[in-house]
Design a binder for these strands. Structure first.
Lengths: 235, 235
DNA sequence: TCAAAAGTGTTGAAAATACACCCATGG
DNA sequence: CCATGGGTGTATTTTCAACACTTTTGA
């Protein structure tokens, strides 16, 4: 026996949803397709699984090509398998989402793929079922970030509490009381106050914080509360 | 252009993790493989995606074959893609888990697949990476059931609060105070008290409850609390 | 000196926990 | 009549939400 006889063999794709935060708003990285079909349209960065690599390896390979980055936060989102989702040929695609520090993103790779960051509200229409992928990823991020500290993946190694608050506010499209917010995040014990201040955002300056990586890994799976009344937000 | 040239084509499998509750403990439905490879060993019920069906359709097809049931709770768990996970041939498998009312399960189908329910603690070793699938499914169920009312899918249309409590206790392998438990579940507003009692478990009898399906669908995504101190349980 | 953002504390309300006794009934 | 499981209430603690003023400093 050298294989499964009589079973269909299907092209297996991956699509990568890359999110970043520029200090103001959550953004997604899209490429301008340089090939058919849908040449010239905006799309997610994708690729195909090779015979000898896992889908995680394929995603990391594609993300490295696109961003120059390794070892970023990457999570399997969902596998999309509608028979007609790809007009070229029956294709099954597993979507992954990545959260990166937008500052580490390698600008010079832009040109190869004509990649561009889009605020989610200004995102162009995407090809195939990619719109659905983005919506699902946003839901997942909002869900998970209400309970787990994933949004730190979007920030540089040092960040201020006001920066962090703007990030949460932009992800949930809401305003949060700053007194309660800082109490909540500091009570997790994940943050270590630095001596230096970030003077770029104000005259007085805001203290930098860093993640305590020990506690970050230890508490990642715990239910923490980052968002007031999450029940009201996630419908 | 009639397809993607030069891309690998891979056999796409699905594996179904079927969970049930017998009033005492959470169980999983396994089949005894009647074919190679690993003939005679216990395994999940699986199948292959046909060219013209989605993976959801494939899972439902396979589950109908196995259990005789339609329309059960079914959720995509994860896609497993290690190149060597299947010794026969490179195969990618998307795992789905189903929660069913064990009483609706059609016993007569047993014989076709030599299917059997196993308490999770007494589960035999499974083939390939199926052990990993079961562990991941359990994690997902525990996670989700702490916040959302999915465990009702395991119960018959009418059930008592003591039955429900035993279910939660067995899923989380813990003891819960019955006064606080009934307060918690009743406060969700999801349960409708019936006039009749279940006399099978005690002389006095326990009132039956039914789900208010309107509210069940409406509140499914909300964060409800079914478990005390979930942070301590889910590590 | 003043505009603009950072930082901090208290109080009341709501939710969660701990805990123990009475009830109904079949045998 | 009694053993067994079903059902319920309260007091305490903890958590969450609402809310406003002072500090710093570059321009």
């Amino acid at each position: 026996m050298t294989g499964y006889n009589n079973e269909a063999r299907i092209v297996q794709a991956i699509d990568c949803l890359v999110f970043g935060f520029d200090g103001e708003t959550l953004k997604i990285l899209l490429i301008k397709r340089g090939f058919q079909p849908e040449k010239g349209k905006w799309s997610l960065m994708g690729g195909f699984a090779k015979m000898t690599e896992s889908l995680e390896q394929a995603s990391n390979r594609v993300l490295k090509q696109l961003t120059g980055l390794d070892g970023m936060y990457l999570e399997q989102l969902h596998t999309f398998s509608e028979p007609n989702r790809d007009p070229v040929e029956r294709t099954i695609s597993t979507a992954y989402f990545a959260l990166i520090d937008i500052n580490k993103y390698k600008q010079q790779l832009n040109d190869d793929y004509h990649a561009e960051w889009f605020p989610l509200k200004k995102m162009p229409k995407l090809i195939f079922d990619q719109q659905e992928m983005v919506e699902l990823a946003l839901k997942r991020i909002r869900y998970k970030a209400a309970l787990h500290p994933i949004l730190f993946e979007l920030l540089p190694g040092r960040f201020t509490i006001p920066q962090l608050q703007i990030l949460y506010e932009s992800v949930y499209n809401t305003k949060i009381d700053k007194r309660n917010f800082s109490k909540r995040v500091l009570s997790t014990g994940l943050l270590v106050k630095q001596e230096e201040k970030d003077k770029s955002g104000s005259k007085r300056g805001a203290f930098y914080y860093q993640l305590n990586m020990q506690k970050y890994y230890a508490k990642f799976q715990a239910f923490l509360n980052f968002i007031p009344n999450p029940t009201n937000l996630i419908s």
